[in-house]
Computed example of a mutant assay.
Amino acid sequence: MKQSYVYILKCSDNSYYTGVTSNLESRMFKHHTGFYPESYTSSRRPLQLVFYCEFTDINLAIDTEKQIKKWSRAKKEALINGDFDALVNLAKKSFDK
């Protein structure tokens, strides 16, 4: 089975970029060299790979990427830091008036 990856980059402006690829090494090279000059990361180099996970199902990888992109910065940082207990708490919505 072909591997796919969901990854998070920390950009020089401290923002996060989440992506999905079937070749992480090649994709990282393209990010680092500014291969796509109009891309989000091109003007935010240097970049640091701070998280990645592997998938055997590309559809699940794409769904996971879309989900992470909607997360708050705090929730992304909990994932990056492996703080899975915090992920649960950060997923709770507050309905305070």
Rank of each mutant, 00 (worst) to 15 (best):
Q3G: 02
Q67E: 08
C53A: 14
Y17F: 13
D96I: 05
K66F: 06
K2F: 04
F84W: 11
I58L: 05
P37R: 04
K93I: 11
E25Y: 08
D13I: 00
S43H: 13
S15P: 01
N89L: 13
K66C: 07
K2D: 06
G19S: 14
V6I: 09
F55D: 01
K76V: 05
K97L: 04
F51I: 06
Y40C: 07
T21G: 12
G34Q: 03
S94P: 01
N59F: 13
T21E: 07
A78K: 00
E65I: 03
E65T: 07
S94M: 04
L47D: 01
S43T: 06
R27V: 03
I62S: 05
Y36E: 15
T21S: 13
M28V: 03
T41Y: 02
R44P: 06
Y7A: 01
K30W: 10
L49Y: 01
N14P: 02
L47V: 15
T56A: 09
V50L: 08
Q48K: 11
A86Q: 15
S42N: 13
T18H: 06
Y40A: 08
F84H: 10
N89Y: 08
S43D: 11
S72F: 01
P37L: 07
Y7Q: 00
V50K: 10
K97H: 04
Y52N: 14
Y36K: 12
Y16M: 13
A86P: 00
S22G: 12
A74I: 03
C53Q: 10
S26R: 14
F29Y: 12
K93R: 05
L60H: 13
E25F: 09
E25V: 12
T33A: 08
Y52E: 08
K76A: 04
K70D: 09
Y5G: 13
L60I: 10
R44I: 02
G34D: 07
Y5K: 09
Y7I: 01
D63Q: 14
L9P: 01
Q48M: 11
R27P: 08
K76N: 12
V88C: 04
W71D: 07
L47M: 13
H32K: 11
F55R: 00
E25S: 15
A78S: 12
F29L: 10
Y16W: 03
F35A: 08
T21A: 14
I80S: 12
K93G: 09
V50Q: 09
I8P: 09
Y7E: 07
V6M: 13
C11G: 03
D63Y: 07
S15I: 02
C53S: 14
A61T: 03
T21C: 14
K92E: 09
D63A: 11
T33R: 12
S39G: 06
L9G: 01
F51D: 05
F95T: 08
S26Q: 13
K10V: 06
H32A: 06
D63V: 02
A86Y: 00
Y40L: 11
F95R: 01
Q48I: 08
K75Y: 06
E77Q: 15
F55N: 01
T56H: 15
R45E: 05
N89D: 12
A86F: 00
D57N: 15
N89E: 14
T18R: 10
L87T: 03
G34F: 00
T18F: 10
K70E: 12
P46F: 04
N59E: 15
Y5F: 15
N23S: 14
E38V: 06
V6H: 03
G82V: 00
E54C: 11
L79S: 05
I62Q: 09
G19Q: 02
R44C: 05
Q48A: 08
E65H: 01
